[in-house]
């Protein structure tokens, strides 16, 4: 896709040879700088500066509850972090949460896109209904699930569980079930995203390859395995990358449902950094946790982008 930008720049650039051309090019640069300046100043102020400030605060003890202990501590916060069991647990919870939600979204989303693609009527229903969860605030989604869906007995999920003979469960009170619940909620909200993107790219696949495959008597499975999947690969990888980044930074949907509990059963790294900073008011150590989160995000996105480039 970078090619579009390259070609459009190419059209514009009849390399300035004359003085007149050079003056024009200089004017264009100045005009560009003037247009970019407000947005870039705002972006630097709201992203780059806070990032540097975060790294700086992570080298301090900064306890809002006990300000008299504050001071520069160098890398002490990071040393504490490496031997902090709660940190490693939260990292593991983050990875389980991200891995399972992304896998579920892609598998269900793809299966459903393939199914709907073959439908002659009713595709419109899917397109409209699929939008609903995606546009909602994760905070509101979390609240709805926590109450009307997962509450014991009158919550619909529990009602269904009782009628299925499983009995009433403590969906958010039991550590394992709480994890299953937050994963299910995230999957519920974001599978439509994978579904819509994959449906759109399925619809753009060339029809004639399938005709040829049918003439060659390729089975439905062969057509999927040999044609659809390779052609869809870029879209699938894109969905995986985007959903992974979002799942890694998810906050509201867990915060509203379990707040990381029971205990630390659903405490992803995000929530740990938040709780440490704003509940336990230990800002310096919270900053170190946030830096760790940043590093994890960079490492994982690095892996994913390498995967995208690899054939």
């Amino acid at each position: 896709m970078a090619t579009t930008a390259v070609t459009s720049a190419g059209i514009a650039s009849e390399a300035p040879r004359s003085d007149f051309g050079r003056v024009l090019a200089q004017r264009e640069r100045r005009f560009a700088a003037a247009l970019l300046a407000p947005a870039f100043l705002a972006l630097m102020a709201t992203t780059t500066f806070p990032l540097l400030f975060l790294v700086y605060t992570s080298t301090f003890r900064m306890d809002l509850a006990m300000p008299f202990t504050n001071g520069f501590v160098g890398f002490e916060n990071y040393q504490v972090l490496l031997s902090d069991e709660r940190f490693w647990t939260s990292l593991l919870v983050s990875l389980v949460y991200t891995g399972s939600t992304v896998a579920l979204q892609v598998v269900i989303g793809l299966a459903l896109a393939l199914l709907v693609m073959d439908m002659k009527r009713g595709q419109g229903w899917f397109r409209v209904i699929a939008i609903l969860p995606v546009v909602l605030s994760p905070a509101v989604v979390g609240m709805i699930w926590r109450t009307f869906m997962l509450a014991p007995e009158f919550g619909i999920v529990d009602f269904l569980a009782i009628n299925a003979g499983l009995g009433s469960k403590n969906w958010l009170g039991d550590p394992t079930l709480a994890m299953v619940s937050v994963i299910a909620i995230h999957t519920w909200q974001w599978t439509p995203f994978a579904f819509m993107v994959l449906l759109a790219s399925l619809a753009s696949l060339p029809e004639d390859i399938y005709e040829a495959a049918r003439l060659d008597r390729a089975s439905a499975w062969q057509r999927f395995r040999r044609i659809t999947l390779p052609l869809l690969r870029p879209a699938i990888v894109m969905v995986i990358i985007m959903r992974t980044m979002v799942a890694l930074t998810a906050f509201a949907a867990i915060f509203t449902v379990t707040a990381g509990g029971p205990g630390t059963a659903t405490e992803i790294l995000n929530l740990y950094a938040y709780r440490k900073s704003f509940t336990e008011l230990s800002i310096g150590y919270g900053s170190a946790l946030a830096v760790a989160l940043l590093i994890v995000t960079i490492v994982i996105s690095g892996i994913l982008f390498a995967m995208r480039r690899a054939k």
Partner: peptide
């Protein structure tokens, strides 16, 4: 740069914002 700023985890920058 614009793309990279989008990838910053919100929890990472909320602490400096608050301070």
């Amino acid at each position: 740069y614009v793309l990279a700023t989008q990838m910053l985890p919100p929890v990472g920058i909320i602490i400096p914002y608050f301070l």
